[in-house]
Amino acid sequence: MSPDERGAGRAADPASALGPTGALERLLTLVLAGLVRDEDELLGDLAEARAGVAASRGERAARRWWWGQALRAVPRLGWHDLVHRPAMALLGLAGFVGWVALTSVAYTASWFPTVNQSYDMAHPVLPRLSDVIVATTAAGVWNLLAAALVGAGTALLARRARLVPGLVSAALMALISARHAFYIVYGPGTCATSPDGSVETCSLELGAWSDDVVVPVLWQLPTMMILLPVATVLGGLAVVARVRAHRARGQAAPPR
């Protein structure tokens, strides 16, 4: 952008060219705000340059320019803070440990609707399909809720670039979700045998870590590998939005 364009940008109507106009633009703005230490610097530069492009080439070109710049900035900003601020990576790691602790509740708490039944070989008791669906849904939703809590918690603790630690947690969650079936397992567990070698009882387990994975990886990959990071980022974004709203209210309030 030339100095003339910059000057034209100053003269342009700020309301028409400066701020994000659509819901997606507002969401991307929120993501950018969550990745930087000083959102005024980056978002202000984007807004100022956008006004210049709008004045010289029109609003459509300006919007295209803004999207291009904003999308290119997201990975660079996230990577920058991860590499240059090790505390962010450590906070993300702590968030992941917290998430593991939270999800383990689903398999240990008595009130959680996982299904554990025993049967003998003569009278197998298989769970009803509705029980399977309830257990699967409850465990899956709990995992996602825990991810969102971790995203929000790490965003609260990181005083700037609030989304960055959550990216570490989300990446680790996605990684482990590819290795373990932690959200539904449906199959025969271990069988106990008597001293003479005959089978006494066998257990059937649902909703816990197990090698008896019936739900194929093809089901798990597109759900948990995508949804866990999304839930983590949404939790972080909620905190970023709240902090920004709080700050805006503080700036709008008249000085006492």
Binding site: G9, P14, L18, G19, D38, D40, E41, L43, G44, A47
Partner: peptide, 12 residues
Amino acid sequence: DPLPVRGGRSRR
């Protein structure tokens, strides 16, 4: 200070 050309945001 916040500048109108930047949508009310400050410069660094």
